[in-house]
Structure formats: structure tokens, C-alpha cells
Design a protein around this nucleic acid. Structure first.
Lengths: 204, 204
DNA sequence: GTCTATAGCTTGATAGAC
DNA sequence: GTCTATCAAGCTATAGAC
């Protein structure tokens, strides 16, 4: 179902985007309740009432962020192709998802925080859009295991493992850095590790 | 460094524990800022001023929770034994950690929320206690890879993978259930999947 | 130890001048 | 469209009776 987009002037769109960028920064760092409109306004370089001129409420900013980022977030899984080589398809998905964590850590933490607290703003999205997309890809993977082209693994848990392993580096970034200390970018080592892991796990 | 424990009467300890249990429930569900002392008081069956009779502030309750749960949280890793069979030691750790997620999901989400938001109350714990414990176990695992008893994997990333894969089922429980629908307990399938995964990954 | 009442502050949201 | 000023609600924490 398409939602009617209200028409907006150039300056409206620009300021709306400035606010959304600032809100992403603040919400991902301190959560919904931990963030004040004043902090968002400061980060956006606007006054608090001006922020509320573009969005009717703090909640509206938050919801606007979530829905605006959903496509970005589901894109890597959508690309999984039933016609490709199974192992390479899954490894490609792993790579895309890891790069998403590396390049969009705030977006990752925003979604993580939302889901962690029971996804009060995303319940229907999870049980509809996400559920259906996963169901489609699960049946592709189930076909690959049934025909023996990859090892017999539960497709749901395979997908969960990809989410968990890739998002960990963005969501728990502080912990990763505290444990590894000052060193090279964790993502390089992570990719080598994950490639080993998934090739071994999936070999027929 | 040992911290001096203040002496407390039986009723004091009982009420402190009631409050901490209630606080765990509330903080893990809505985060620190999203939780009010009133909600904690209600869940504990006490009045708000009475809660603040046992703890000087909301922050003190939160910190008391975190430090009180730390030992529980690190216990499974402490048990990893250099003298045991490498694969079985690592699989044992995976099992213990998965059971911890299943049996203590609120504790898992409390830590996850704290780390996700930059661990403002746990910075020193992460870079000291956790860092040192992990360093010790990393060197054990490094010994196993060097002697060829398990495959050559980066020990840090191996530990991260165990954390990520096990905690995912507790922390993102809503998402797991939304995707899998009404069905059997996800943890049974998870354990089968993880056993396959780690045996394949670690085989020399 | 436990309660009622409330002080004092922060915050989301609005009014209204420009 | 943007601002200053401000309202009204909700919150942490305390005072003080019992």
C-alpha cells in the first residue's frame, strides 16, 4: 500500500533532512527517551520550536527515521538470488550486511535499540514486511539444502546468524574496542573470520 | 579490589532484592531513561519514597543492578579450561552462554542496552575486568590454533561470534518470534544449529 | 520503615511577535 | 519560516508526620 507523499518545498525537504540526520545521531546514542528535542535541535542547528514546525512531535521524528531507513536495511537480503551459486549468494549477503554495519553504525544501533525494547513502533513491520521477506528467502535456502548444494542447516537460524554476526560489530562497538584495545579496524578481521565460518558451515 | 559491603538487616536485604528484581524487569524493558521510579515501585509493591529509602537515587539502583549481575555474566567464559579438549571446551562455552540467554533474557537485554548506548556506566569494567578475562582466554585459544588442535581462527572474533550468536536470541527476541511465527522454542533449534556451526568451523 | 505531600527541575509542545 | 517566552505535565528527590 502506497502512502500519499505530501508536497514539500525545497527548503522544507532540506530542513527535514537536517533534522532527521541530527535525530539519528542523538536517538542512536541515547535512545528515544534519553534524547530531548533540544539536543536534536542543537545538533541540527535549529531552535526547538523550529524543529517542531517541521515535525508535529518527537515521536513523529522517530517514526519518520525508522520508516525512512527500512528500505536501506532490508536491501541486502532482497538481493539474495535463487539463481546464483548458493555459497556465493550467502557470502555476498554476509559481505553486504557487514559493510552496512561498518558504514551505517548509527542506523544499526537505532534498529537494535528499537527491537531490544520490544519494537513498540515497528511491530507490524516486523510481522509483515520482514516476516514475508524472510519467508521468501528461507524457501530459497531450503531448496539449496534439500538439493544438497549446501549443508543441511536450518534456514531461519542461518539468517539469524548472519544478522547477529554482522550487526554485533556496530551495535556493541564499544565492547569490541574495549576488548581488542587500540588496534586495526575490526571489520577487516571480521570479514576474514566470517568468510572462513560460512564456507566451512555451508560446505555440502 | 574488594569493596566494603555495608552491614544490612534481614528486611533491608529482602527489600533491596525486591527492588532490584523489579528494576531489572523495568529497565530491561524500557531502558534507563524510559523507566520511572514509580514503575519500579509499583512492580516492587512499594511506594516511591520507600524505594528511595533503600537506594539514594534511580542511578544507584541501575548501577547496583549492573555490578550485581556482572559475575553471573562472565561466569561461562571463566570456565573455559586450557586443559580440556579444545572443541568440547568451546562448545561447552557456547552451550552455557545460550542457556544464560534463555534463562536470563532480561539480564541480557540490560547489558545489551547499556553497551549499545556506549556503556556510560561500565566503561572501566569493560576495559579492565572484561578485557583482562578475554585476553586470558584468547591466549588459551591461540595456543590451540598454533598447535593445530583447532582450525586457524582469530580468537577475538571467535569469542565475539559466540557472544553475538547466543545473545541474539534474548536481545532480539521480538524479531526472532516475528520472523519464525508461532512455533516451537527457538532455543532448541538454535543449539542444533550452533553445534553444527562450531564443529565445522573449528575442525582442524 | 513507610507513608502523604510537595518542592524543584526538566521537557514536550504552543502562543504569538517578527 | 524562525524566533522568544511560556505553559502544563511528568519526573526525581526530599520533608516531615506517623
Amino acid at each position: 500500500m502506497k502512502i500519499q507523499q505530501p508536497r514539500r518545498s525545497r527548503i522544507q525537504n532540506k530542513n527535514r533532512n537536517v533534522i532527521l540526520d541530527a535525530a539519528l545521531q542523538e536517538f542512536s546514542a541515547r535512545g528515544f527517551s534519553g534524547t530531548t528535542i533540544d539536543q536534536i535541535a542543537d545538533a541540527a542547528g535549529l531552535s526547538k520550536p523550529n524543529v517542531l514546525y517541521y515535525f508535529p512531535s518527537k515521536e513523529a521524528i522517530y517514526r519518520g527515521l525508522l520508516v525512512g531507513l527500512l528500505d536501506l536495511w532490508l536491501a541486502p537480503l532482497r538481493e539474495l538470488d535463487a539463481e546464483g551459486d548458493p555459497v556465493e549468494q550467502i557470502l555476498g549477503y554476509v559481505r553486504r550486511k557487514l559493510l552496512l554495519s561498518r558504514d551505517y553504525p548509527n542506523e544499526s544501533r537505532l534498529f537494535a535499540s528499537e527491537v531490544l525494547h520490544g519494537a513498540p513502533h515497528m511491530t507490524e513491520v516486523l510481522s509483515e514486511d520482514l516476516h514475508d521477506l524472510v519467508a521468501e528467502k528461507v524457501s530459497i535456502i531450503a531448496g539449496w539444502t534439500a538439493s544438497g548444494r549446501i549443508a543441511e542447516v536450518d534456514p531461519h537460524h542461518l539468517i539469524f546468524s548472519i544478522w547477529a554476526l554482522t550487526q554485533h560489530y556496530a551495535d556493541f562497538d564499544v565492547q569490541v574496542r574495549a576488548v581488542m584495545g587500540e588496534g586495526p579496524d575490526p571489520y577487516a578481521g571480521a570479514m576474514i573470520f566470517l568468510e572462513h565460518l560460512f564456507r566451512r558451515m555451508l560446505a555440502p
